[in-house]
Design a protein around this nucleic acid. Sequence first.
DNA 1: GTAACTGCAAATTCTTTGCATCAAC
DNA 2: GTTGATGCAAAGAATTTGCAGTTAC
Lengths: 140, 140
Amino acid sequence: MNRKANLEKARLRGGRLTSQRKLIYSIVSRSDGHLDADQIYTEAKSARPRISLSTVYRALARFKEMGLIAEHDLGQGHHHYETSHSENHHHFVCNRCGLVLEFEYALSRQVKMNVPALKGFKVTSAEVNMKGMCRKCGGK
Amino acid sequence: MNRKANLEKARLRGGRLTSQRKLIYSIVSRSDGHLDADQIYTEAKSARPRISLSTVYRALARFKEMGLIAEHDLGQGHHHYETSHSENHHHFVCNRCGLVLEFEYALSRQVKMNVPALKGFKVTSAEVNMKGMCRKCGGK
DNA sequence: GTAACTGCAAATTCTTTGCATCAAC
DNA sequence: GTTGATGCAAAGAATTTGCAGTTAC
């Protein structure tokens, strides 16, 4: 389950293990939070000044395709990336300070059992995005 | 709960009731599905050829601010708009045909009870976005 | 009459693409 | 050596903004 093994798996699926990709993957997996493409790019540049934003986007797309990372739309005008967690991994975003809190919640099974309209559908992903105010910003 | 009353409420909150806004609101509320800004614009143009896309965006932003409509990000690169429903209104998107299915599910309360990390937070919105395959496209 | 709204064009932001060069396999 | 990956610049899509003229209140 370590970084190196994941990348090796990626290589076997047809991807090439370039130094740029190793760098990008290590940035995403080292970070405990949710980085957007530009943050990843900025961080990557400090280690490798000539890396380009398109390389970042292309690597992220490839990793996503292979299931190594997940892309989330937290309603902030751009995507966020993180290493893949369980399918029960969801997000709360504070409207005031932008804090992103992650939490686990076994959604799919419950929804499947409680929503007849979805009978016969194959659900491949289910994400919950909550918004509001965190404790510091005035949650009640 | 009718269209006219909602718009009147909007007017009282400081908004002006221009013919463009009435048109835009009627398009969104007449549609049973989820329109994106461009679809709304296209439809509006057939009634009022010189209306501009920015007017559409500005009206939608205003309506959203006033709670008349809801904006959803269904992961398709642009937003979708619909008249506000209950807070338990969620979406499923078919990865193959793009079908958007709406369903009701009382999420917030359950999550609040089951996710200790969110204690003390004020949740103002909670949306579930599911993806997968609909029955026609090969749901199992 | 005044402040808010409109249409238009231009600007922004995020993301993707074309292409010549380069590097992993 | 071949094919996929990179960097750069340019294109694209969605959305926002500046501004002068218009309209609801």
